[in-house]
């Protein structure tokens, strides 16, 4: 089954990419963009069919490799 892992910089870690996107959006005339944060989305296609087991596997992967807990947090969603 498909599992999506979203990896974002932790709150409080400076996100210069997000800041740059926000600046660019303002520059393009998009008003009212209060904040932008940039992260990444990792799509996993797992052989596992049990949702709980798939979620557990994806969380283990995120902890081990996909996210760096020093600076990043992650969210696992079943597709």
């Amino acid at each position: 089954m498909k599992v999506n892992v979203t990896v974002m910089l932790k709150q409080g870690v400076l996100d210069p990419q997000g800041k740059a996107i926000a600046r660019a959006l303002h520059g393009l005339g998009f008003e009212g963009v209060e904040d932008v944060r940039a992260g990444k989305l990792i799509e996993l296609d797992l052989a596992e069919t049990n949702p709980d087991a798939a979620r557990a596997a994806a969380e283990a992967m995120a902890q081990k490799l996909l996210a760096n807990s020093v600076i990043e947090s992650f969210r696992v969603e079943l597709g």
Binding site: L9, L14, V70
Partner: peptide, 17 residues
Amino acid sequence: LTEAGLLPGALLRNAGL
């Protein structure tokens, strides 16, 4: 070394991107 936990902290994108 930081990713492997042998040294603390992390290296982010350069501030100037």
